[in-house]
Write a protein that binds this DNA or RNA. Structure first.
Lengths: 209, 209
DNA sequence: ACCTGAACACCGTTCAAGT
DNA sequence: ACCTGAACACCGTTCAAGT
């Protein structure tokens, strides 16, 4: 159970025939099914293969190991969140700090709480294997997005804009994750909705020169 | 591999004789050894038992399952951090918002980056099994600590002090964790050292009535 | 080119048998 | 009261054999 090489987490070979493309999709769907119906603890290669209607051997032709199955799903979720934040970024380009802070906090919370069923499954996965590489990449993308937004804000200039964008990403991402993992009750999410935009705005204003 | 009942994560029975107390400690030490030398991926019950010089059967007399071994270690680390924050709290009681923000951010970063070897091991564990219960508890303790500090700050009153303390804990805990997990390079930690106190202070000032 | 499934090495956990 | 370790059920992964 050594940590796998992240570059090997994608499917092993690209389908050459139509039927193998169908096989890959069947395995994908089966993984989600097993995850949702049986839970992470009961997600085994045998079970996924059975549900997908293929043999274990076939599965290993496309996914180098069990973690690759899970990674495929997590990656898709991360991509959805990334897309949502890109859309928010387009919408908010050129706005002032207050609008930025409120808009980004809302978009982030919406994305993270959108599909609670999927999110729960993802958090289960997250505790089961190493996601630091994927998360690092996501954090970088987010930081670059924020940096561009800050550069185009009409009411702000920063001594070290890159650091401010970095910190903003850490504040947004970290606080929401912390609450989601520790105790995502309605009361706590409501608190986040109120306090998070306030915190982001206050930080941006304080960092401004 | 169902999630174990958290209340069952402690040692199974209290030692009745001196030798069994020694056995428990030997198992504890062996777990740390295996973790540090071989890594999480190679931490098996057989290996721990072997290093501790007992049989697997004996191990299962004191720890109901493998996760209990890991939980014992994580719990101790969490306790150390908690103690550090309590000490900081004593030191900072009655100080103003600026001193609080800077003191808490520094104490938190110190505690989290103190023993990098242990921290690495802990993060490895964290991705291997469910820590949400332990983290929830830690977050609650921290929030209460912060609430008391805010109540005694001479230069501040808050409309909803509990929410502000809650958010402060989320900001501190979340941002540091995010950076530690995504990319804990010296550059990023340095950025945190500068930006985190600023963010905390700005938020507290903005939340003040 | 793709699929099968018995076989392999290993794992966590138990329990009858010992001291 | 405490310890042992073979036995059990299960897991992830491979590979010779098939179509």
């Amino acid at each position: 159970m050594n940590r796998p090489n992240p570059t090997l987490l994608q499917p092993r070979k690209t389908p050459q025939q139509a039927r193998s493309a169908a096989t890959i999709e069947a395995i994908r769907q089966a993984t989600i099914q097993v995850l949702l119906v049986e839970g992470v603890g009961r997600l085994t290669t045998t079970r996924v293969a059975e549900r997908a209607g293929v043999s274990v051997g076939t599965m290993y032709q496309y996914y180098p190991h069990k973690q690759a199955l899970l990674f495929g799903i997590v990656e898709k979720q991360l991509l959805l969140i990334e897309e949502a934040m890109c859309a928010a970024s387009d919408r908010l380009m050129g706005e002032d700090l207050k609008t930025l802070a409120e808009g980004l906090a809302a978009a982030w919370l919406d994305a993270k709480t959108a599909d609670i069923v999927s999110s729960r499954a993802i958090y289960g996965i997250a505790s089961e294997f190493d996601l630091s590489a994927a998360m690092g990449r996501a954090a970088t993308v987010m930081t670059e997005l924020f940096d561009a937004l800050l550069a185009n804000a009409p009411d702000a200039r920063f001594a070290d804009r890159a650091s401010v964008a970095f910190m903003l990403a850490a504040l947004l991402g970290g606080s929401v994750r912390m609450v989601m993992e520790a105790d995502p009750s309605d009361g706590n999410l409501e608190r986040l909705r109120i306090e998070l935009p306030r915190a982001c705005h206050a930080y941006l204003v304080a960092a401004r020169i």
